[in-house]
Simulated scan of single mutants.
Amino acid sequence: MQMHVEDEYSALYLKRVSLGYTVMLPLYVTSGEPAGIGPDICLSLAHRVDERPVVVLADRALLQQRADILNLSVQLIDYQGQTESSALGELYVEHVALQHEVKLGELDCANAAYVLEQLRRSADYAMHGRSVGVATAPVQKSVINEAGIAFSGHTEYYQEFAGVERVVMMLATKQLRVALVTTHLALRDVADAITTERLEQVIDILLHDLRHKFKIAKPKVLVCGLNPHAGEDGYLGREEIDTINPVLQRYREQDNDLSLSLPADTLFRPDYLHDADAVLAMYHDQGLPVLKSQGFGEAINITLGLPFIRTSVDHGTALALAGTGQAKSSSLHVAVDLALELAHQSI
């Protein structure tokens, strides 16, 4: 089971590390949907000094316009391969040209290609050893699709670009990490999607990245059952008996510290979680409401299974808040912090 992940992407990740994490390669930050709060929160990165360059992918004029609206004094500096971090009050920018004028809070299909160019560059740089990875501000999937471009989201875009079979969504706060077996599926489709193959792929990726990216030697993972009371010995469903627990038992026999399936309504108690490194939830709304109730605005999304580091904010484009000064940038800062920490641990 472990060899699946090693063959799938571990060699790519190790190659990426060897290409230059020891030098001060930049971390790229995509500014996302231009009519939303992405440019606003990216400007807040000028208020920090980091161990390596942090570079925002955005239209330079858009950032300057948004800084003027917000009455922010930020010096925008064109990034040209500098290896030192920007100074306080400065922000490195790599210019990506807008196709159409941006109006605050108003989506425009004409700028869909602008958003995708940010993602393309960030993925290309990460894959070819020109950066340590990427942190992403929010995009609006609907407007990209309305432009006639098939787009499921950041995660799927980076997965396809990297050419890996599966990735895993994990959200995290300072106290809790929750990975998902299934993500954006209708609830009626979840049970059919939880197959032996899918579980093994997800668990392989989760264990691999906890060990190699987070440097946890022997991760302890608590696993939610699918059904109420984890199926209650088959009276409330047999997925735990027929599929989930047999997979988990095989990992346990290989000296992995995974629980058998546990009732999700009691698993998230502090006495369970205090020494756990991650929780594996079967579907989106099983684990994420608990995590977001603990740290919404300071939670982040991490894509596991990529051969590079990718973190993201835990919120949307908040179109109504663009240019108002009310947008909170804490999630982006936590996403940048974690990406830089993971890059440092890879040295």
Rank of each mutant, 00 (worst) to 15 (best):
E8H: 05
T266I: 15
D337W: 00
K141G: 04
P34V: 08
D108P: 05
N245I: 13
Q118D: 03
T311P: 12
Y9G: 04
A112G: 07
K220I: 08
G32H: 05
S259R: 13
V181R: 11
Y272C: 13
S86T: 04
T136E: 06
E94N: 14
E165A: 15
V96K: 07
V29Y: 00
E197V: 06
T22Y: 01
V143G: 11
M24P: 06
D257A: 15
G325H: 05
H284N: 03
P138C: 03
G36L: 00
Q82S: 13
V132H: 04
V139W: 03
H128I: 06
C109F: 08
I144W: 09
A135N: 00
V93S: 09
R166S: 10
A191F: 04
E8Y: 02
K174E: 12
S293M: 11
L321E: 04
V290D: 02
L116T: 05
L319V: 04
Q82R: 09
S31A: 15
D189M: 07
E51A: 14
V74I: 12
A150H: 13
G287T: 08
D124Y: 10
C42I: 06
I216E: 11
P219F: 03
S86N: 13
N301L: 11
V190L: 00
G81R: 06
P263A: 10
A147Q: 15
L321P: 00
V164M: 08
Q140A: 15
S331P: 03
E253K: 14
Q254K: 15
V102P: 07
L321F: 02
L236G: 06
V93Q: 04
V23C: 03
L248E: 12
H315G: 10
T182G: 03
R188P: 02
E101A: 15
G81L: 09
N301K: 04
F161T: 15
V134C: 05
E33R: 04
L319P: 03
K213N: 12
A61N: 14
V178Q: 08
R121P: 03
H100M: 06
T182N: 08
V164C: 12
T22C: 01
R250S: 14
D192W: 00
E240K: 07
S142E: 15
V334L: 07
A46S: 15
H47W: 03
V143N: 12
